[in-house]
């Protein structure tokens, strides 16, 4: 899980063009949108595409659910882990 969290932070830094931002500057549990990093709706779309491409995951058409997954790095990591290995997650 720690590796996944690190990877996601690296992807955020690599995708979103925020000056001098390092993976260490991103708090795992802090909100990604509005507060925290203050990302915008375009960031959400771009990050979504990158995550889908890298982890071969799929997002629900239900936006409430997707919004929850995009809350923080921690929630994204949990979601990606559950999609990659559904059995392990259920235990």
């Amino acid at each position: 899980m720690d590796t996944l969290v690190k990877e996601i932070k690296q992807l955020i830094v690599g995708t979103l063009n925020l000056e001098g931002l390092t993976p260490e500057d991103i708090e795992t549990d802090a909100p990604l949108f509005r507060e925290g990093l203050g990302l915008d709706s375009i960031d959400a779309l771009e990050l979504g595409l990158v995550l889908k491409n890298k982890y071969k995951i799929s997002f629900s058409s239900e936006d409430q659910e997707t919004r929850k997954h995009f809350y923080s790095v921690a929630t994204l990591a949990k979601f990606i882990a559950s999609q990659r290995n559904p059995d392990a997650f259920q235990q």
Binding site: D25, D40, I42
Partner: peptide, 19 residues
Amino acid sequence: VGKFLLEIRGHLRETLEPV
């Protein structure tokens, strides 16, 4: 620069559109 940028962004959140 990274942390400073986040501080600046925090200040502007109230008054500017995210983009």
